[in-house]
Every structure is written in C-alpha cells, then in structure tokens.
Amino acid sequence: MAAIREPWGLSVLGAGSVSAEPSLAFVDLAVDLLAPTPKVAFAEAGAAVARLRETLREHGIPDADVSGSRLRLTSQYSGYGAERTFLGYTCEAKYTVRTEALDRLELLIEDAVTAGANRVDDVRFEVRDKPAMRDEARARAVEAARRKAEVYAEACGIDLGTVIHIEDVNPESVGGHGRSAGRADHEHDGTLSPGSVRVDAAVLLGFALLPAS
C-alpha cells in the first residue's frame, strides 16, 4: 500500500490559457535556384532577391521588417555511388517577412512567389503583446490551482493555509504526460493558427494545511 513518506501539506497543479486574434504574421520565404555554374547561380539568385525586395517595398513592408541571410551556394547531385550525377549549383537566400496587413497576406505571398521567392517554408501568426498574454495565462493557472486546492481542503474538512511552494511547470506536460515530461523556466509559445493565437501556462502550488476553524 502506497504511503506519503514526508507529509507536509497540499500540492496541486493548475493550468491556464489565453487566446487572441492574431495581429501580425511572419512569412518564411526562400529564393532557391539551380544553375550550371556558380556565376550564373549567383546572378540569377541576386536578380530574384532584388525583385523580391522591391515587391515587398511595394506592399509597404520596410526593410527593417525583413530579416534575411546571405546567398548560400552548394553543389547538387542526384543518385548515389556510381550512379551519382552532378546537377549544378544551388544558390539559396532565406527571408522572414513581418507584416501586420493580414487582410492582404495572401496577395503578398502570391506577389513574392511571382517575384522570385520560389519557396514558402512557413506562415506564423502572432500578437503584438505576447508577454502580457503569457502573464494572464499564468495568473489563470494560479487561480485554477487555488480552486482545486480549496475543493480538496473542503472535502477533507480542513482549512487551506498560505502558499509555501510555487513551481513553474512546462504546460506541454499537463496534457497527459505528467510532471516528469518537463518543467522549470519554459517559455512556451503556445499553439498558433490562422484563427487565433493561444498561450498556455501551468503552475504547481503547495499549500499549508490548517485545522478546520
């Protein structure tokens, strides 16, 4: 029969979440071209990058909202061993574009692809003040933990004392994996979707217990 070796009070886990409509989006684009020589690869990719930058400016996106990388050149082959065949040189440049014009996002992506961004790696939706959402989710997690503790204390015929332990918990571990799945200072970004941005939080609270008054 299981026994509590070191009884000290009541420990409860609480979870909370906050959702909000997205206010901006991040689009990961890439210019990825194959050419027979490095010179041609650099020239074609450079021209595509210039067209892409100009298209983004036409959409009102300043250069400061476009983070990118330098042109990267790699050799490309097909097959293995004796069947390996040289295909040419791939020149790649990746960009992340930030935009608040969500109503024109589809047109932005279409124009970027037309301009030369022949790869769309990801589209992520965000909110402007995510730290505030995370704080609210943590406050809701504390409220949920306290409500749970009050139910346990009332059912046991005792009073709930002060909080004597607070532990930040990885919210991903709350969904059935248990505390062993991970905890501590984990800044979880939540679930992102075109419809909403969700931020989760979880907390483990320890309460002292008092005799019923």
Rank of each mutant, 00 (worst) to 15 (best):
R183A: 10
A137V: 05
R84W: 02
R70H: 10
A30M: 11
G175E: 11
V197A: 15
L210F: 04
G46C: 08
A139G: 03
Y77N: 11
A82M: 07
S19V: 05
D103V: 04
A184T: 10
P211A: 15
I166K: 14
G46A: 06
R5W: 04
E154V: 01
A43F: 03
P22H: 00
I61D: 11
A93C: 05
K94H: 11
A144H: 14
E6V: 04
E92Q: 15
R128E: 08
A212H: 13
T114P: 00
R147E: 15
F86H: 11
D129E: 14
S78K: 10
A50Q: 14
D185P: 02
I61V: 14
G79D: 04
I164W: 01
N118C: 05
A47Q: 14
E167V: 06
F207W: 07
G157L: 02
V97I: 14
L52D: 08
N118D: 09
R5F: 09
H177I: 09
A137E: 03
D28N: 09
H177Y: 15
R128G: 04
A47W: 03
R98M: 07
A181V: 10
S196H: 07
P22C: 01
S11Y: 03
A47M: 08
R179M: 14
E167C: 01
A2N: 12
R198G: 04
V199P: 09
A101H: 02
V174Q: 09
T85C: 02
A35W: 01
L204D: 05
G116Y: 00
A50I: 06
D200T: 08
L210T: 10
A212Q: 14
Y77E: 09
A20H: 04
A30L: 03
H59R: 04
P131V: 04
E154W: 01
A132T: 10
A101S: 05
F207S: 06
A45R: 02
A141E: 08
V31M: 01
L209I: 14
R124D: 12
D189N: 12
E167M: 06
K94R: 15
G176C: 02
G46H: 06
H177T: 12
F42E: 12
D65K: 08
T99E: 02
S213F: 07
V12R: 04
H59D: 01
